[in-house]
Amino acid sequence: MEMQKKSFFMVPYLAWIALFVVAPMALILYQSLFDITGHFTFSNYTSYLESTTYLKMTFNSIWYAFLITFFTLLISYPTAYLLNRLKNKRLWLLLIILPTWINLLLKTYAFIGLFSQNGSVNDFLRFVGAGSHQILFTDFSFIFVASYIEIPFMILPIFNSLDEINPSLINASRDLGASAWQTFKRVIVPLTMPGVKSGFQAVFIPSLSLFMITRLIGGNRVITLGTAIEEHFLVTQNWGMGSTIGVILIIAMFVVMFLTRERKSKGGQSR
């Protein structure tokens, strides 16, 4: 009876996994084995690996995703740390999460308004006498907007892991003579590593395949794998090549998951 009940409750989960995780990935893998004329082939993979364009694009994507993750982490960790010490921390957190309720495209378009030649930022620069600058369609604007969009997804897990730290651990550390810096370095940082890791996953993986922002803010001067997938599915209609890049991204995702997995504690080192 107990077993039956358990398997009964497993049904929605298994159905979900089968329909929306396994089946799409299998379909992508299947699609990637056909060339543009519909013949079964591995040529998509060989041409991917032989083409300097695609390899360069892959490198670009990883590099931009890394930069975006780096800057979000740089901003998020101190923010989460400070938020956690505030009085109404839940409210402040809510204010940071609020923008994620707004549609991504709307936010992106808002940045076009801010960054364009006659936008507020250039108005301000002209006002202070710095002259107007080309901000849109640069690496800077792309990384800035992407980081802005990803920040809540980094803050949230870090905040939660900070929130879960038992204050007595910090008190103990201070009692035992550690300085504030030592406490931070030896107690707080290790204890928040799981949060940082899940933040890393939540930011790095989507950043690898950003495509709308590369076009709207980057003006396609920034080309990532996401752009290539969009192009292969919508313009070239070369679904095989698009799927191949999709498979590569899935593999990249697994690699990232593996590298940032939660390791079982070996002895007392990390705990």
């Binding site: 003006g219 396609n220 001067r221």
Partner: peptide, 11 residues
């Protein structure tokens, strides 16, 4: 080239 875009050119 400033940008390679689609419909946004209009805007």
């Amino acid at each position: 080239v400033k940008a390679v875009v689609a419909d946004e050119i209009k805007m």
